[in-house]
């Protein structure tokens, strides 16, 4: 694991893995969505709106998966002081927030024709909205850590605290009466017919690969920013007069 503490080793892997994951993810997710939009039969009750499933479920999974990634990376950072772990946690925040927002938006659009309402304050919807706000808070904290010299441990601790919400989201439809349906996919069981399940699994796979690609791209960007800063600072130290006259921006 500590082999990757060296950014060179990480970069040699990420250089080819990033475009591979991004392109592979886009192709698979795009194919699954086209399948879901054009070739899947309408649902017995919901009719055509069942097609929103192929966006809504991967987005929900990656929104929650994004925070889980933040929590695990934060744990690795707090315990092993692994510098790349802090980077990985920060990198998962924006895509996680984006997928949470997509999950809420597609869910709302789905709710109008099926439930008859855009939004209700039931356990599932409320806890998912809380997750979106947690992402915003985490992004703000991580930026403060980077720019204003706040300890990197603060966002890491927040990332761990926020993980409490993940099992609450997961169990919300079981613990509380809710308008949102109970889980369709439980350990080894599926209440979703194969005609919907197969494209759904492809969509989840495609979006997950895409998510991995975006996280790697974010990590590379953050790492490059840090390296550039460090290099400019070193240059400024080597030639103070030059640095002062020209400025380092």
């Amino acid at each position: 694991m500590h082999g990757f503490a060296n950014p060179k080793r990480f970069l040699s892997l990420a250089t080819w893995l990033t475009p591979l994951l991004l392109v592979g993810g886009l192709l698979i997710a795009g194919g699954a969505l086209a399948w879901g939009l054009l070739f899947v039969p309408p649902d017995r009750l919901m009719g055509e709106t069942v097609r929103i499933l192929f966006l809504h479920v991967p987005a929900a999974w990656l929104g929650m998966g994004g925070w889980t990634a933040i929590a695990i990376s934060s744990l690795a950072f707090l315990v092993w002081r692994h510098p790349l772990a802090a980077l990985a946690a920060r990198a998962a925040a924006v895509p996680g927030a984006a997928f949470t927002a997509i999950c809420l938006a597609t869910g709302s659009i789905w709710g109008r024709p099926t439930w008859g309402t855009w939004w209700v304050w039931d356990g599932r919807l409320t806890s998912m909205l809380v997750l979106l706000f947690l992402f915003f808070a985490y992004i703000a904290l991580a930026q403060a850590a980077e720019r204003e010299g706040v300890s990197e441990r603060i966002p890491a601790i927040f990332g761990l605290l926020g993980a409490v919400n993940i099992p609450i989201i997961n169990r919300s439809v079981v613990w509380w009466n809710s308008l949102h349906q109970p889980p369709s996919l439980t350990m080894g069981k599926s209440a979703i017919d194969a005609a919907f399940l197969v494209p759904l699994l492809f969509a989840v796979l495609g979006f997950s690969l895409l998510f991995g690609g975006v996280v790697l791209a974010r990590m590379r960007a953050l790492l490059a920013d840090r390296q550039a800063e460090a290099r400019l600072r070193r240059k400024a130290m080597e030639a103070p007069a030059f640095g002062q006259v020209r400025g380092v921006s």
Binding site: V40, P41, P42, D43, R44, L45, M46, G47, V50, L53, T114, W115, G116, T117, V120, L179, Q181, P182, P183, S184, A191, I192, D193, A195, F196, L197
Partner: peptide, 24 residues
């Protein structure tokens, strides 16, 4: 004064219910 429809966890294609759109 307001009704909301609740969907259950089952997803079944219309065809499998041996129903055409018309019959449904």
């Amino acid at each position: 004064d307001n009704l909301l429809a609740k969907h259950d966890e089952n997803y079944v294609p219309r065809e499998l219910q041996e129903m055409t759109e018309h019959q449904a």
